[in-house]
Simulated assay, not measured.
Amino acid sequence: MAYEFISVERDGPVTVVTLNRPDVMNALHSPAHHELHDAFDAFAADPDQWVAIVTGAGERAFSAGNDLKHQATGGGMGLPPSGFAGLTERFDLTKPLIAAVNGVAMGGGFEIALACDLIIAAETATFALPEPRVGLAALAGGLHRLPRQIGEKRAMGMILTGRRVSAAEGRELGFVNEVVPAADLMTAARRWAAQICELSPMSIRASKEAVFKGLDEVSLAAAMAAQMRYPAISAMLRSEDFKEGPMAFAQKRPPQWKGR
């Protein structure tokens, strides 16, 4: 499928989605949101794609978030059902997502990264939820994901000031997994993706689903009682991979994962 505002590359079981509006620091408008929705729908539906990496074109920005100039000049800001960037309300995606943050991740750009499972950041990356500076609020998940990921007080320290946080501080706060030189960013992101792909994709999806659905349960006991009803766990238990893993271990050979 041809895209105008993003690019999609497939390398084995890894999909790389690049926000491709560098002239506006990869800020997103309605057509870009809908392209991303379609791209992530395709990724979710493709049994041969196991992990996705999301990054931004150019050296300046991952994404500056909402395209305010487009909005101010009367451009439509309609979102797909999956939310900002086709991700922030995509709650049923069990395949892992890696954000490779190559520069500014502001507002909705930070919310895209927070919607991913891992954040790998270039040393030059910066993060913020500055919406109150322009009379807005981070309603694409930032106000909810950030406290869940780093704790209430740390999150409120960012939210109530709109301050910028460096990649190094982001790692200290706990929302960044690794900080690398800018030139090494995609190599590092692909390394994380390769490590994930060494494992059973059925197990990875079951694990991700159990983590996030379990956090919504009222207690640890309730989460453990409910997990056997989760679709990805049921799929794992019925899969070829569920048989292949123990067989490969017994035969002292690398497993041949099928993802089904």
Rank of each mutant, 00 (worst) to 15 (best):
Ile6Phe: 05
Ser7Gly: 08
Ser7Asn: 12
Arg10Gln: 12
Arg10Asn: 06
Pro22Arg: 06
Ala27Arg: 13
His29Gly: 01
Ser30Asp: 11
Ala32Lys: 01
His33Ile: 06
His33Glu: 05
Asp38Ser: 11
Asp38Ile: 03
Asp38Val: 05
Ala39His: 05
Phe43Ile: 02
Phe43Gln: 01
Ala44Asp: 15
Ala44Pro: 05
Asp48Lys: 12
Ile53Asn: 00
Val54Ser: 04
Gly56Phe: 04
Ala57Met: 03
Asn66Arg: 10
Lys69Ser: 13
His70Met: 06
Ala72Phe: 08
Thr73Glu: 14
Gly76Tyr: 08
Gly76Thr: 15
Leu79Gly: 08
Leu79Pro: 09
Ser82Cys: 07
Gly83Cys: 04
Ala85Lys: 03
Gly86Lys: 02
Glu89Pro: 01
Arg90Glu: 02
Asp92Met: 07
Leu97Tyr: 01
Val101Gln: 02
Val101Arg: 02
Val104Asn: 02
Ala105Pro: 07
Gly107Asp: 01
Gly108Trp: 06
Gly109Val: 00
Ala113Asp: 04
Leu114Glu: 09
Ala115Met: 05
Asp117Tyr: 00
Ala122Ser: 14
Ala122Pro: 01
Ala128Arg: 00
Arg133Gly: 00
Gly135Gln: 13
Ala140Met: 13
Gly142Pro: 09
His144Val: 14
Pro147Asn: 10
Arg148Ser: 14
Gln149Asn: 09
Ala155Gln: 03
Gly162Lys: 06
Arg163Leu: 04
Ala168Leu: 12
Arg171Ser: 09
Asn177Glu: 14
Pro181Thr: 08
Asp184Thr: 04
Met186Thr: 02
Ala189Lys: 01
Trp192Tyr: 14
Ala193Tyr: 01
Glu198Cys: 02
Ser200Gln: 11
Ser200Val: 06
Pro201Leu: 06
Arg205Tyr: 05
Phe212Pro: 03
Ala222Trp: 02
Tyr230Met: 13
Tyr230Ala: 12
Glu244Thr: 11
Glu244Val: 08
Glu244Phe: 05
Ala248His: 04
Ala248Val: 07
Ala248Lys: 09
Phe249Val: 10
Pro254Cys: 08
Lys258Asp: 04
